[in-house]
Deep mutational scan, measured.
Amino acid sequence: AVTGSQTALLLRAFEKDRFPGIAAREELARETGLPESRIQIWFQNRR
């Protein structure tokens, strides 16, 4: 499950760019500790 702090970080990124590229998703994966594929799905679901 995604924690509150991970969600906050993802929401901030989403406000800046609703369609992040692979580099941005990989950076978010490093920052959150989540797999990049999970980040991609999160953005798809959020849109």
Rank of each mutant, 00 (worst) to 15 (best):
A1S: 12
A1H: 12
A1K: 12
A1W: 13
A1Y: 13
A1T: 12
A1R: 12
V2D: 06
V2G: 04
V2T: 07
T3N: 11
T3L: 07
T3Y: 05
T3W: 05
T3F: 06
T3M: 06
T3E: 06
G4L: 14
G4N: 14
G4D: 15
G4Y: 06
G4T: 14
S5F: 14
S5D: 13
S5C: 15
S5N: 11
Q6F: 06
Q6H: 07
Q6E: 04
Q6I: 14
T7N: 14
T7M: 15
T7Y: 15
T7P: 02
T7V: 13
T7L: 15
T7S: 11
T7C: 15
A8R: 11
A8T: 09
A8S: 09
A8C: 14
L9I: 15
L9A: 12
L9D: 03
L9S: 06
L9F: 07
L9H: 08
L9T: 11
L9P: 03
L9W: 05
L9G: 03
L10I: 00
L10W: 02
L10Q: 01
L10M: 04
L10C: 03
L11D: 07
L11C: 13
L11F: 04
L11Q: 11
L11W: 06
L11S: 06
L11V: 12
L11A: 07
L11E: 15
R12K: 13
R12C: 11
R12H: 08
R12W: 06
R12S: 10
R12L: 12
A13L: 06
A13F: 11
A13E: 04
A13C: 13
A13K: 02
A13R: 02
A13P: 01
F14Q: 01
F14P: 00
F14C: 02
F14I: 02
F14V: 00
F14E: 02
F14H: 01
E15D: 08
E15N: 09
E15F: 10
E15T: 07
K16D: 05
K16L: 11
K16S: 07
K16W: 06
K16M: 10
D17S: 08
D17T: 08
D17H: 07
D17C: 15
R18A: 13
R18E: 08
R18Q: 13
R18I: 05
F19W: 14
F19M: 06
F19K: 04
F19T: 05
F19E: 05
P20R: 01
P20S: 02
P20H: 02
P20T: 02
G21W: 02
G21Q: 07
G21S: 14
G21R: 04
G21F: 02
G21V: 03
I22Q: 14
I22H: 11
I22K: 15
I22M: 12
I22P: 14
A23W: 07
A23C: 12
A23R: 11
A24E: 10
A24S: 07
A24N: 04
A24I: 09
A24F: 07
A24P: 02
R25C: 12
R25I: 15
R25T: 09
R25S: 03
E26N: 11
E26K: 13
E26I: 12
E26L: 14
E26C: 14
E26D: 06
E26W: 07
E26Y: 08
E26V: 09
E26S: 09
E26P: 01
E26Q: 13
E27I: 12
E27W: 10
E27H: 09
E27F: 08
E27Q: 14
E27S: 10
E27C: 09
L28A: 01
L28I: 08
L28E: 01
L28M: 06
L28S: 00
L28R: 01
L28V: 02
L28N: 00
L28F: 02
A29T: 04
A29F: 03
A29M: 07
A29V: 06
A29S: 11
A29D: 00
A29K: 03
R30M: 07
R30Q: 07
R30E: 06
R30K: 11
E31L: 15
E31W: 07
E31G: 04
T32D: 01
T32Y: 01
T32S: 05
T32N: 01
G33L: 03
G33A: 03
L34Y: 03
L34C: 04
L34V: 04
L34A: 01
L34T: 02
L34R: 00
P35L: 08
P35F: 03
P35C: 07
P35S: 14
P35V: 05
P35Q: 07
E36Q: 09
E36H: 06
E36R: 03
E36W: 05
E36V: 13
E36L: 12
S37I: 12
S37R: 11
S37E: 13
S37K: 10
S37D: 11
R38K: 12
R38I: 15
R38N: 07
R38A: 15
R38Q: 14
R38P: 02
R38M: 15
R38C: 15
I39D: 02
I39R: 00
I39L: 03
I39G: 01
I39F: 01
I39V: 09
Q40L: 14
Q40I: 13
Q40M: 13
Q40T: 09
Q40K: 13
Q40H: 12
Q40S: 10
I41V: 10
I41M: 13
I41N: 10
I41F: 08
I41W: 12
I41T: 10
W42Y: 01
W42M: 00
W42A: 00
W42L: 02
W42S: 00
W42F: 03
W42D: 03
W42N: 02
F43M: 02
F43P: 03
F43C: 00
F43Y: 04
F43L: 03
F43E: 03
Q44H: 10
Q44C: 12
Q44G: 05
Q44W: 07
N45V: 09
N45A: 10
N45G: 06
N45T: 10
N45I: 10
N45M: 12
R46G: 03
R46K: 13
R46T: 10
R46Y: 11
R47F: 04
R47G: 04
R47L: 09
R47H: 05
R47P: 03
R47T: 06
